[in-house]
């Protein structure tokens, strides 16, 4: 029996506690312990961005964070993006502009795009492309994703 570590963290404003094996990642905690499966595993090596979350306000691949490292952190995931029943402008634009096909990369891309637009809603196409270069999408060819992010930024700027 390997020793488990007690981990307490805040996810989307709610407090959680769990016991994690030492090799478990924050991604494993979110998905397997807290059953917050909106955050996806695509590679487990930090190369695809499907597991993107915010940790203490910083965009992070949750597959690269060990569970005990998440102790006391504040984590934001896709499940917390819509507020009070209202979709975030990014979610709305992704829907309207078909910024998703199969949808497996979508949560990670939305979290990553929000991290950019929160700082810089007027990011241009090139900035968005380079910011999202850590998020693989195999379906869309990125075109409609980039356009949806630009349109959401436009709306957030006006808000």
């Amino acid at each position: 029996m390997s020793k488990k570590y007690h981990v307490s963290l805040t996810v989307n404003g709610d407090e959680y506690e769990c016991l994690a094996e030492p090799q478990m990642t924050l991604l494993d905690v979110l998905r397997d312990e807290l059953k917050l499966t909106g955050t996806k595993e695509g590679c487990a090596t930090g190369d695809c961005g499907a597991c993107s979350v915010m940790v203490d306000g910083r965009l992070t691949c949750s597959c690269l964070v060990l569970a005990p490292e998440a102790e006391g952190r504040s984590v934001e995931t896709i499940e917390g993006m819509a507020k009070d029943g209202e979709l975030h402008p990014l979610q709305q634009k992704f829907l309207e502009m078909n910024g998703l096909q199969c949808g497996i990369c979508t949560p990670g891309i939305l979290v990553a795009a929000k991290a950019l637009l929160d700082r810089k809603p007027d990011a241009d196409e090139m900035e968005i492309r380079y910011w999202l270069a850590g998020n693989l999408c195999r379906c869309t060819g990125y075109d409609k994703i980039i356009r949806a992010v630009m349109a959401a930024g436009e709306e957030m700027k006006g808000a």
Binding site: L36, T37, G38, T39, T77, I78, E79, M81, A82, L87, Q91, F94, L95, L100, G103, T106, P107, L110
Partner: peptide, 8 residues
């Protein structure tokens, strides 16, 4: 099917 895909 898009709604569930943008909300996780």
């Amino acid at each position: 099917d898009g709604y569930d895909k943008v909300t996780g």
